[in-house]
Nucleic acid binder design. Sequence first.
DNA 1: ATGTGACTTCAAGTCCGTG
DNA 2: GCACGGACTTGAAGTCACA
Lengths: 71, 71
Amino acid sequence: MEITIQERLGQRVKALRVKKGWSQEKLAELTGFHRTYIGMVERGERNISLQNIFSLSKQFGLSLEELFKDL
Amino acid sequence: MEITIQERLGQRVKALRVKKGWSQEKLAELTGFHRTYIGMVERGERNISLQNIFSLSKQFGLSLEELFKDL
DNA sequence: ATGTGACTTCAAGTCCGTG
DNA sequence: GCACGGACTTGAAGTCACA
């Protein structure tokens, strides 16, 4: 079973979040998303929209290009 | 008025499509999207999802990183 | 060959909770 | 601090007739 693009992005988001020392709740608070949604995104269960991808990348201080680097 | 991220992506998609010599209808056929949907994406009127962004990037033979380069 | 408004449908995204 | 579930509301996906 191939890993999907949303799972790959989810893993990236989780790695970045942990690196920042943030809980899912903290990232939810920073981005304005719901805490359960962050969890679903990290598990690759949600097909996130461009706007929301952009919100996450900004929170991590990354461009979209950087966010998707080697993904 | 700032240009939005979806408008920037739309312009990028259009530029890539034109460079390939494709009409919106041709790109629609290749990606499986509706012709009018392609137009709306190019005009930045749709908040496109990760899956659909990925479908477009594959059609252009680009990685997501490349698609978002300097965007 | 493309722009636009108006749809319907179903997934995105929220909010309550539990172990 | 996180995964998971049920029951919501909102918004993207996808289509069409017409200009």
